[in-house]
């Protein structure tokens, strides 16, 4: 004999699973730019599943880099992200460990071992607005890059070139860029793998 509560519970699981499937089919096809996630974040889909939306990483960040998502897509609400042009990720250079990863209770942010293994995204330079591409000698991005000569190099015409395998997407170059608006855009890893530039 199954009670009303149990019946409603099972019915709820079926309804919820249906809604979940519908959500995924609708949401998966939508082309919205994704948020740039904190260092150590799992792949976007796994990150959204594992993030418990508690905001502990946001409070833990000593530089005030991380933001609380208040108006994004429904599945993004409450998750942490950063806008590197305003506050980039300093990779906790003044601390022994990455504070946000340490704070995460669910493993949505996972310790990558060393800073070089972080893959938040990749910087993309817009040659139309980059000063160095337009005849000005400028090395602002290179100066700020935590991996100069590895992640940002210069070609024979002294124009900056991003080495995609070495760039971790911290956004320090985006913040440093003298062009207005910035000639550098950090493309989150998920958007790159989705076939976008």
């Amino acid at each position: 004999m199954i009670g009303r509560r149990e019946f409603m519970g099972v019915l709820g699981v079926v309804v919820g699973a249906g809604a979940g499937g519908l959500w995924r089919s609708v949401d998966g096809g939508r082309e919205t730019p994704h948020r740039l996630r904190p260092p150590g974040a799992l792949d976007e889909e796994d990150f959204l599943a594992a993030c418990i939306r508690c905001g502990q990483c946001i409070v833990a960040c000593p530089y005030g880099t991380l933001r609380h998502d208040d108006e994004g897509r429904l599945s993004d609400r409450g998750t942490p992200y950063l806008v590197p042009r305003e506050t980039p990720c300093f990779l906790c250079k003044d601390y022994e460990s990455l504070r946000c990863i340490e704070a995460c209770p669910t493993g949505a942010l996972e310790d990558p071992g060393d800073v070089e293994s972080i893959h938040m995204g990749v910087a993309v330079i817009d040659p139309k607005t980059c000063l160095a591409f337009n005849g000005v000698v400028c090395r602002a991005c290179w100066h700020e890059c935590p991996f100069p000569n590895q992640a940002i190099r210069f070609d024979s015409l002294l124009r900056p070139v991003i080495v995609e395998d070495a760039c971790i997407g911290c956004g320090l170059c985006d913040k440093a860029c003298l062009a207005e608006p910035s000639a550098i855009r950090i493309v989150p890893t998920v958007d790159r793998e989705g076939g976008k530039p």
Binding site: G16, A17, G20, G21, C51
Partner: peptide
């Protein structure tokens, strides 16, 4: 109970804590 079930079902298939 219906809402509780739906939340669990959504997490299972929708793959985020809705």
């Amino acid at each position: 109970a219906l809402v509780l079930g739906a939340v669990v079902g959504f997490a299972l298939v929708g793959r985020y804590p809705a």
